Amino acid sequence: MPTEPAGIAVVDDHDIIHTGVAARCARADPPIRVISAHLTAQSFLANYPQANGTLSAVVLDLELRSRQPDFDALTAIVDAGHTVVMYSHLENDEIILRCLDIGAVSYLAKSEGQHHLIEAVRAAGTDEPYVGPRMAAAIWADSTVGRPGLTERELEVLNAWFQTESKDVVAQRLHLSPATVKTHLQRIRAKYAAAGRPAPTKAKLVARAVQDGLLNIDEL
């Protein structure tokens, strides 16, 4: 079962979104605390320059103070070690996939309904990703039938994790933060889930990787 989040932050340039997300989170069972809300990524990072366990997720809009996707804001927040759930009205497959490649653990369209947001926030505190309808469609469109397309870095993290029992060891080996390693693994699981081949455990993930020729069993 997902663990209860320590609290979330909302970064959106419309304060009505702050109010709406906080109200929906308060009605969740059990409630989710919105402990910080910001109009800009700069304001958020001034208060949370590095992930420190206070926040389980950052709910981030993709358009901040402009009508253009702000991928730089997402990159900066991910690079600071935060777990990011995108929450945007943009539904273009290419945009969704780019956000996932940068490091967002989930992407939700605002048109999908706030119950998806609650599920995504709860999942952000676990190793299990939440795949909403638009995110699933984008991943599916980007993959061959049944086989997700993993990036070179995802494959590197996956192989390193298969060879050790600790994400911290993987992080040290690849010079990444533990939070970044976790994000890569969440995204890999999300891609398998969207392809109709969920891999909720490490054993299942090993099996999928061997089936797809991504891993030689002799390497373990």
Score class of each variant (00 low, 15 high):
1 M>V: 05
6 A>H: 10
7 G>A: 13
7 G>P: 08
10 V>H: 00
15 D>A: 06
18 H>G: 00
19 T>Y: 08
19 T>P: 00
24 R>M: 15
31 P>A: 15
32 I>N: 05
32 I>C: 09
33 R>H: 15
36 S>Q: 04
47 N>T: 08
47 N>G: 08
51 A>D: 11
60 L>V: 00
61 D>G: 03
61 D>R: 02
62 L>T: 01
62 L>Y: 01
75 T>W: 10
76 A>C: 08
76 A>E: 11
77 I>N: 01
77 I>P: 02
78 V>S: 06
78 V>F: 06
80 A>F: 10
85 V>E: 00
88 S>F: 11
94 E>I: 05
96 I>K: 10
99 C>K: 04
102 I>V: 13
103 G>C: 05
105 V>G: 02
106 S>F: 09
114 Q>R: 09
114 Q>A: 13
115 H>N: 11
116 H>E: 13
117 L>Q: 08
124 A>I: 04
124 A>R: 06
126 T>V: 01
128 E>G: 01
130 Y>R: 04
132 G>W: 10
136 A>L: 13
137 A>F: 11
139 I>E: 03
142 D>M: 07
143 S>K: 12
144 T>A: 14
145 V>E: 09
148 P>S: 11
150 L>D: 07
154 E>Y: 08
157 V>R: 03
158 L>S: 00
159 N>L: 15
160 A>V: 03
165 E>N: 15
166 S>I: 06
169 V>E: 10
182 K>G: 11
182 K>W: 09
185 L>F: 03
188 I>Q: 01
189 R>L: 01
191 K>H: 09
192 Y>Q: 07
192 Y>L: 15
197 R>H: 15
200 P>S: 03
201 T>G: 04
201 T>I: 05
203 A>Q: 09
205 L>V: 02
207 A>L: 09
207 A>S: 14
213 G>R: 10
214 L>H: 10
217 I>H: 12
220 L>H: 08
220 L>Q: 12
